[in-house]
């Protein structure tokens, strides 16, 4: 028979450790990835209970879709990744380790599916990130020192417009940097897990993350600067 899974499950399952990142700057509470009712869920799945399959698909799909869209941008690609992740997980329930969280397990399969899809597609035109990093003179002082920001109040981070601006800025980052930023700052994986997921060294993760954050700050700078002030960092051309 023709196999229904476009990506081999063992590859999707070859994932990174499940250690979350608990750094000092991650202050946003996570939306839970676990289904609300896990009573006998894995047992029910393993016994072929169709209701259990539908329950877990309904419970986990919204967050998984949002996660896949962060990596892939397109809705269609994100839906493909979610479907591949669920099918891979269901096919490999015998590999699920008791004591683990089933939602977290499937979420990690999804991240692998999204990363594989990202690698396989043609790279879009990407601006060099160097243009978005701070510049320094020969004595090591900033050429354009940071100027104050006026974040929109009273609750700026909840404002739709702010979120739209930030999302667009993140989406404009080159894939290699956007991916690290999402894995570390949004998915809150630690450096080692991120390195394992991407197949790069922990040092490369740190370097890319620092550059991604700096570039994002530069992209946000004109939106939060008081009017009529000079840019503090080079702006994208």
């Amino acid at each position: 028979m023709t196999h229904p899974f476009p990506i081999s499950a063992p590859t999707l399952l070859n994932f990174f450790p499940l250690s979350p990142y608990h750094g000092s700057v991650t202050t946003v509470p996570r939306i839970p990835v676990e289904p609300p009712d896990q009573t006998n869920l894995v047992e029910r799945l393993r016994s072929g209970d169709a209701g259990a399959y539908e329950q877990i698909v309904r419970d986990l799909t919204p967050r998984m879709l949002a996660t896949a869209k962060r990596f892939l941008g397109s809705e269609a690609d994100a839906e493909d990744a979610v479907q591949e992740a669920f099918l891979s997980a269901f096919k490999n329930l015998d590999k699920f380790q008791e004591g683990s969280q089933v939602g977290t397990w499937i979420h990690r399969i999804l991240i692998n599916a999204a990363l594989m899809k990202l690698r396989s597609r043609n790279r879009r035109h990407e601006a060099a990130i160097e243009d978005l990093l701070p510049k320094f003179d020969s004595t090591g002082h900033a050429e354009n020192p940071a100027q104050p920001w006026n974040l929109p109040g009273p609750d700026p981070i909840q404002a739709d417009e702010t979120r739209r601006v930030v999302r667009e800025a993140i989406e404009s980052l080159p894939d290699a940097y956007r991916t690290v930023l999402i894995l570390r700052d949004v998915e809150q994986l630690d450096t080692e897990s991120t390195a394992a997921a991407l197949g790069i060294t922990p040092n490369a993760v740190k370097t890319r993350l620092h550059r991604a954050r700096q570039a994002l700050r530069t992209l946000l700078d004109p939106h939060f600067r008081p009017e009529h002030s000079e840019p503090s960092d080079p702006q994208p051309s």
């Binding site: 949002a66 900033a142 020192p145 920001w149 974040l151 979120r163 930030v166 999302r167 700050r217 946000l220």
Partner: peptide, 22 residues
């Protein structure tokens, strides 16, 4: 100021990406 903005950037990124899911 750069340090504060760097930290704000991280928080803004987290909030911008988290709100869609729920």
């Amino acid at each position: 100021r750069y340090l504060n903005q760097y930290q704000a950037t991280i928080r803004l990124g987290q909030h911008a990406m988290e709100e869609e899911a729920a």
